[in-house]
Amino acid sequence: MKIGLFIPCYVNQFYPEVGKATLQLLQKYGEVGYPSGQTCCGQPMANAGCEKDGVDALKVFYDNFKSYDYVVGPSASCVLHIREHGEKLYPNMKPILDKVFDLTEFLFDVVNEENLIGSFPHKVAIHKSCHGLRGMRLGQCSERVTCNPSKQDELIKQVQNVTLVQPQRADECCGFGGTFSVAQPDVSVRMGKDRINDYIQSGAEYITSGDMSCLMHLDGIIQRQKLPIKVIHLAEILASNSTLASNEKQHHVDAI
């Protein structure tokens, strides 16, 4: 199968190791192509109330990925935007929308991965990003009386030596919210601090998530306040056994 690797703009700029880990993981399932010249999904405009300004970004996305069997990216948020608003904003996209997946969904639902070989000897709390959780139903939402599988938990449990810890509040928002983080910095940072404290209280060494944007926000606070916890993208933990990923991760950990 031909898999197109979708690297969100901020991941490309700031978190190349997340891209590398995603690439490593996907190479197991087929031929992975990375179209150069990716820009953005257009979500920042859309959530700021200017969705039409994001149409050009969707066109670029479509041109980059139209020939792939699957398009996979390490960001539930960007993928959700494309799936929810893509067709309305840029009708040509319709045929590819069913092929666009977040990494968790791809691993759990498409290729039914059950044999990840990683090892990550740490206490980890999963930050359930809202777009992944409530937008894509990647797990059981605390509000709902349903029995959805928690896909990220199931995947991470395949990694050896990981200890999953549970925060008090299972799935409260971190306060990033795209432009919300700069439009309302007081509330945004306060929400982030509350999440981080909850994760620290739970004994976690790492906060992981399928969305690097939440982690970027949380890490910004962690760095400023020099808090005793680190962030790491889920892809990096799932790919933790490969030489490349582990070297890079060491680099990432040193940096924080």
């Binding site: 990716q38 820009t39 920042p44 405009m45 970004a57 670029v60």
Partner: peptide
């Protein structure tokens, strides 16, 4: 920003 995102 929208224009820029239309141009890699």
């Amino acid at each position: 920003a929208g224009k820029a995102m239309g141009s890699p």
